[in-house]
Deep mutational scan, measured.
Amino acid sequence: PKDEAKKKVKEAIKRGDEETAKRIAKKYNLDWDDAKREADEER
């Protein structure tokens, strides 16, 4: 599900692992900028 994928993307971003985050986002066709902004807001 997309929500689960987005959570994984945000967790990867918070760990500083943007490569993984981008790969997950691409795989699930998520909006990378959107997920990154959300992760930054939660930090």
Score class of each variant (00 low, 15 high):
Ala35Gly: 03
Asp33Trp: 06
Lys14Tyr: 11
Ala21Gln: 00
Val9Glu: 00
Ala21Leu: 01
Ala35Asp: 02
Trp32Phe: 14
Ala12Met: 11
Tyr28Gly: 15
Tyr28Phe: 10
Glu42Arg: 05
Glu19Asp: 10
Lys14Met: 14
Lys27Tyr: 11
Arg23Glu: 12
Lys14Leu: 15
Asp34Met: 11
Trp32Asp: 02
Lys36Cys: 09
Glu11Thr: 03
Lys22Thr: 02
Lys10Pro: 01
Ala5Pro: 05
Glu11Asp: 12
Lys36Met: 12
Ala12Phe: 08
Asp3Arg: 09
Ala39His: 04
Thr20Gly: 10
Pro1Arg: 13
Gly16Pro: 01
Asp33Val: 07
Lys6Phe: 13
Asp40Trp: 11
Glu38His: 04
Gly16Gln: 02
Lys7Met: 11
Arg23Leu: 07
Asp33Ala: 09
Arg37Asn: 09
Thr20Glu: 15
Ile13Glu: 01
Ala35Ser: 07
Arg43Asp: 11
Arg37His: 08
Glu38Thr: 06
Lys6Gln: 07
Ala25Gln: 01
Lys8Thr: 08
Asp31Gly: 02
Asp33Ser: 06
Lys6Pro: 02
Glu41Met: 13
Tyr28Cys: 15
Glu41Arg: 11
Arg15Phe: 06
Tyr28Thr: 13
Arg37Gly: 06
Lys10Ile: 15
Arg15His: 08
Ala35Tyr: 08
Lys26Asp: 14
Ala21Asn: 00
Ala21Asp: 01
Ala5Val: 08
Lys36Gln: 09
Asp33Asn: 09
Asp3Asn: 11
Asp34Gly: 05
Lys36Gly: 03
Asp40Ala: 10
Glu38Pro: 03
Arg37Lys: 12
Val9Thr: 03
Asp31His: 03
Lys10Arg: 12
Asp3His: 10
Ala39Phe: 11
Pro1Ile: 14
Asn29Phe: 07
Glu38Asp: 10
Glu41Val: 09
Ala39Leu: 10
Glu42Pro: 07
Ala21Trp: 00
Asn29Ser: 08
Asp33Met: 08
Gly16Ile: 01
Glu38Gly: 05
Lys26Tyr: 04
Ala35Cys: 15
Lys27Leu: 14
Glu42Phe: 05
Lys14Gly: 07
Glu11Trp: 00
Lys8Tyr: 07
Lys14Asn: 11
Arg15Met: 10
Asp17Ala: 03
Ile13Lys: 01
Gly16Glu: 02
Ala5Ser: 04
Asp34Trp: 07
Ala5Arg: 03
Glu18Met: 15
Asn29Lys: 06
Arg23Trp: 02
Lys14His: 14
Asp34Pro: 02
Glu19Trp: 05
Asp31Ser: 09
Asp17Lys: 02
Asp17Ile: 01
Ala25Asp: 02
Arg43Gln: 14
Gly16Ala: 03
Arg15Gln: 09
Lys36Phe: 10
Lys26Ile: 09
Pro1Thr: 14
Ala12Asp: 01
Ala35Asn: 04
Lys36Leu: 14
Glu38Asn: 05
Arg43Ile: 14
Ile24Pro: 00
Ala39Ser: 08
Asn29Ala: 07
Ile13Val: 03
Asp31Arg: 00
Asp33Glu: 14
Lys8Ile: 11
Arg37Val: 07
Leu30Asn: 02
Arg15Thr: 05
Leu30Met: 06
Asp31Ile: 04
Asp34Lys: 09
Glu4Pro: 03
Pro1Val: 14
Lys22Gly: 01
Lys7Trp: 07
Leu30Tyr: 05
Asp34Cys: 12
Lys36Pro: 03
Glu4Asn: 09
Glu11Pro: 00
Lys6Met: 15
Lys14Arg: 13
Glu4Arg: 11
Lys2Pro: 11
Ala39Val: 13
Val9Met: 13
Lys26Ala: 12
Ala5Glu: 04
Ala21Phe: 00
Asp34Ser: 11
Asp17Tyr: 04
Val9Gln: 00
